[in-house]
């Protein structure tokens, strides 16, 4: 091809790059800029100082981590054995994956609204638990920490599971056969062969699940106590932006939110780097 057509093909990237710059990078940079400015335009750190000095806002970091970290570990921790179990496909796989995709598709708002009745004091779940004698009084599943965590599990688990399923089924089955022929037990095969090879997938599944849980918003409002134990960081950012109309403070909170997510992602990727080195040695040995 001539150089003219070569540079011509790059032109095809222009709309997508323009999109990326205008609708993603520029807003992010704008948010960063706002977070370091006063309402009248002068440069300042006050927005950040205010956040860290205000216990009501600063606490949202721990509140959000306390909601998002445990459920991320549970979602990914459960998804690993389930994906492993289904790695060769199975009967009824289509039905199972269908029910897994439903909560993801319907989204947090519908799931939260449904949970309010279903898991409420007179809902089916409590009726069932009392009928089988597991509990004697209705359990409080909604309007608290537990409700938010359950809703994050209902949508986060299928997400982690479907991601890992695609990943595990891509691992060469010969590795497993070889390991078993050499006398390794099922557990050894999983722990020494399959799991190390799954690590990159597990790391990404963990990161994506965590950032989704960390930025939880609608279910924390509808299912939790948005003015108390489930006042997550996204609620704080929303309130500063759209209730107090202080865009500078809201931007600072958005940036803090992104920074925390970045820190956790970095930690997970460092862990992956360590694990993955081990994996390649195992794979070659």
């Amino acid at each position: 091809m001539s150089s003219a057509s070569k540079s011509g093909s790059k032109v095809l990237l222009a709309p997508a790059i323009a999109f990326l710059v205008l609708l993603f990078l520029y807003p992010f940079a704008y948010g960063l800029y706002l977070s370091f400015t006063k309402a009248d335009g002068g440069a300042t750190f006050a927005n950040y100082v205010r956040f860290f000095k205000d216990p009501w806002d600063f606490r949202t970091i721990w509140t959000t981590l306390w909601i998002s970290l445990p459920i991320t570990f549970i979602n990914v921790g459960l998804a690993i054995p389930f994906a492993y179990y289904m790695r060769r496909g199975m009967k009824g796989e289509k039905t199972i994956t269908f029910f897994l995709i439903v909560p993801i598709t319907l989204g947090a708002v519908l799931i939260s609204e449904g949970m309010l009745s279903y898991m409420g004091p007179r809902g089916w779940l409590n009726q069932f638990l009392m009928a089988i004698g597991l509990v004697h009084h209705p359990v409080r599943f909604t309007h608290n920490y537990l409700g938010v965590v359950i809703s994050l599990g209902l949508s986060g688990f299928p997400y982690a599971f479907l991601m890992l399923l695609g990943y595990v089924s891509g691992i060469n089955p010969d590795l497993e056969k070889a390991s078993q022929m050499l006398g390794a037990s099922k557990f050894q095969t999983f722990w020494k062969i399959l799991f190390p090879l799954m690590v990159p997938g597990v790391a990404i599944a963990f990161c994506l699940n965590f950032v989704m849980a960390f930025s939880v918003f609608p279910s924390a409002v509808l299912l939790g106590q948005p003015s108390g134990p489930t006042r997550v960081i996204a609620i704080a950012a929303y309130q500063w932006a759209f209730e107090k109309f202080n865009f500078n403070a809201a931007s600072a909170i958005s940036m803090i939110m992104a920074a925390i997510e970045l820190i956790v992602i970095t930690l997970v990727l460092v862990w992956r780097g360590r694990m993955y080195k081990g994996a390649s040695i195992v794979g070659k040995g």
């Binding site: 609708l23 993603f24 807003p27 992010f28 704008y30 948010g31 706002l34 950032v211 989704m212 960390f214 930025s215 918003f217 996204a234 950012a237 929303y238 932006a241 865009f247 809201a250 931007s251 909170i253 958005s254 939110m257 992104a258 997510e261």
Partner: peptide, 12 residues
């Protein structure tokens, strides 16, 4: 990046 993180500056 989740929508709530970049959504607020974008909305502004």
């Amino acid at each position: 990046v989740p929508p709530m993180a970049y959504g607020i500056p974008l909305a502004m």
